[in-house]
Amino acid sequence: MDFLLSQNNLWILLIALASGALLLWPNLIGGGRATARIALADAVGRINRENGLFVDIRPETQFKAGSIPQARNIPIDTLEAHAGSLPKDRPIVVVDTRGQEAGKAVTQLRKHGLEQVFSLEGGLNAWIDGGLPLKKS
């Protein structure tokens, strides 16, 4: 017990506890849930089973160059304005190029009451790497 009560050791213990709390903070406040990533196979299965929707947040020019068939294009800068038009009772998988920007979109959509929102791990690149078809407009 003397070890814990020593002035120097007490500071070390407090710093360790604070560091641990800061590492856990995103999960404690729901941040881990807000950026839920979903693997390609799980995303396709969920979309098919539950009549879900792929939302492609890339700019329209990139979307037209190649996208997931039946995906809806809502560029990220207009996403908040279109959030009300998305189904609240079906899963939504957000797609970008590499899976890096989709987490922000997931957070935005969850703030609008959409609960079943996920980002596609690896983005459209994962779709292409998986050998799945692309639609070109």
Score class of each variant (00 low, 15 high):
Gly20Leu: 07
Ser67Leu: 10
Ile12Gln: 10
Leu17Gln: 09
Ile38Cys: 03
Ile47Arg: 02
Gly123Ala: 05
Gly45His: 14
Leu134Phe: 03
Ile29Ala: 02
Glu60Ser: 08
Glu101Trp: 04
Gly31Asp: 06
Leu14Gly: 13
Arg33Asn: 14
Trp11Glu: 03
Glu101Val: 08
Glu115Val: 03
Asn73Glu: 01
Ala43Glu: 06
Asn27Gly: 07
Phe63Ile: 02
Lys88Ile: 02
Gly84Gln: 11
Val55Ile: 15
Ala83Trp: 05
Leu109His: 04
Pro69Tyr: 12
Gly32Val: 06
Gly84Met: 07
Leu86Lys: 06
Ala39Trp: 05
Gly103Glu: 07
Val44Tyr: 05
Arg37Asn: 09
His82Asn: 10
Ser67Gln: 15
Thr61Ile: 10
Ile29His: 07
Asp56Ala: 06
Asp2Gln: 11
Leu17Arg: 07
Lys64Ser: 08
Lys104Tyr: 09
Pro91Gln: 11
Ile38Gly: 01
Ile15Arg: 09
Ala65Val: 11
Leu53Ile: 12
Arg110Glu: 11
Gln100Pro: 00
Glu60Met: 13
Phe63His: 02
Gly31Leu: 10
Ile47Ser: 01
Pro59Trp: 02
Asp2Lys: 09
Asn27Arg: 14
Ser85Met: 09
Ile76Leu: 15
Arg37Asp: 09
Pro91Asp: 10
Ala34Ser: 09
Ala81Met: 12
Arg49Lys: 13
Ser137Tyr: 13
Gly122Met: 05
Ala16Thr: 15
Gln70Tyr: 09
Phe54Pro: 02
Ala16Arg: 06
Asp2His: 08
Leu114Val: 00
Gln70Pro: 00
Asn27Tyr: 14
Leu86Arg: 06
Ala16Gly: 14
Gly31Thr: 07
Gly66Ser: 14
Ile68Gly: 04
Asp2Leu: 10
Val55Tyr: 06
Gln100Arg: 01
Gln62Met: 09
Asn8Gly: 00
Gly123Thr: 05
Asp89Ala: 08
Gln108His: 07
Asp129Ser: 12
Ile47Gly: 00
Lys88Arg: 11
Ala83Asn: 04
Arg37Gly: 07
Val95Cys: 04
Glu115Cys: 00
Leu28Gln: 10
Ile12Trp: 14
Arg72Trp: 04
Leu5Thr: 14
Val117Gln: 05
Asp89Leu: 04
Lys111Pro: 00
Gln7Trp: 04
Gly31Ala: 08
Leu134Lys: 05
Met1Lys: 10
Phe3Pro: 01
Gly45Asp: 14
Ile92Lys: 06
Ile68His: 08
Glu121Thr: 05
Glu80Gln: 13
Ser67Met: 15
Asp42Ser: 15
Ser137Lys: 13
Leu10Gln: 12
Gly123Trp: 09
Phe63Thr: 01
Leu86Thr: 00
Leu28Gly: 01
Ile57Pro: 01
Asp42Asn: 15
Lys104Gln: 13
Phe63Leu: 03
Glu60Ala: 12
Arg98Lys: 09
Gln108Pro: 01
Glu80His: 11
Gln70Phe: 07
Leu22Lys: 02
Arg98Met: 11
Thr35Arg: 12
Gln108Ser: 12
Gln108Asp: 08
Asn9Leu: 07
Ile76Trp: 07
Ala16Ile: 15
Leu10Ile: 11
Ala102Arg: 05
